[in-house]
């Protein structure tokens, strides 16, 4: 789901950065308002490392393969830290492995980071139930990650389909993009189930690690 350098026109890359700045600012603003940010930095660092490595875990979905994203998990566990964490993870992926790109860092941050922030709010929506239980944590954990991947794929598809360069056969490229998007449907369930499991597990052993407030 990482868009590499040279795929998008310069204007779209610039728009990606332009959209990333206010979201990063909003996240940092909320982090500062939430008390001492240093308390959550170890947790954010660990999950940044998990996000960084997760893109190398591929799941074969014939005729292609998809890799783990974990943006829903980061949203559920990190809250407002999720967007900066993903931004840092994407930067390292682009610099170290050319996975993604520096010109498309902003666009990729929107593709994967914005849904992570949204998944935090989806998970927090579980607070409308007075009784906190494993079922609620599991259901909203699943929904958060499920929607995060779904939204990421939707943004990815829209960005690519509206920016197919001249020379390439549009219908062939569209078909390839739709195939890749469909291949992410199993990933929505896999990451949803995994995040639900983590949410229930953390609620049992260390509820403070879950950002529900």
């Amino acid at each position: 789901m990482h868009i590499p350098d040279g795929i998008l026109p310069a204007s779209v890359c610039a728009a990606g950065y332009a959209a990333t700045v206010p979201i990063a600012w909003y996240s940092i603003h909320k982090i500062r308002k939430g008390g001492d940010p240093r308390e959550n930095i170890p947790k954010a660092s660990l999950l940044t490392a998990a996000f960084f490595v997760a893109s190398w875990i591929h799941i074969p979905v014939p005729p292609t393969s998809v890799h783990l994203v974990l943006n829903g998990l980061l949203g559920v566990v990190l809250g407002h830290f999720a967007f900066p964490a993903i931004l840092i993870g994407l930067f390292f992926q682009a610099v170290m492995f050319q996975h993604g790109g520096l010109t498309t860092l902003g666009v990729n941050a929107i593709v994967m980071g914005f849904p992570a922030l949204l998944s935090y709010y989806i998970f927090r929506f579980g607070n409308i139930f007075r009784k906190d239980s494993n079922i609620i944590a599991g259901v909203f954990g699943f929904l958060a990650a499920f929607c995060a991947i779904g939204l990421s794929v939707s943004i990815f598809v829209v960005v690519l389909i509206t920016n197919i360069p001249g020379g390439f056969d549009v219908s062939t490229e569209r078909a390839a993009i739709y195939t890749l998007a469909l291949a992410h449907v199993p990933l929505m369930f896999i990451e949803g189930a995994f995040t639900a499991f983590v949410a229930v597990f953390l609620r049992r052993v260390q509820p403070k690690l879950l950002v529900r407030a």
Binding site: G6, E173, L180
Partner: peptide, 11 residues
């Protein structure tokens, strides 16, 4: 030589 498939590719 440009190669592209589903938003992935290079030159």
């Amino acid at each position: 030589v440009k190669i592209r498939q589903a938003g992935h590719g290079g030159i």
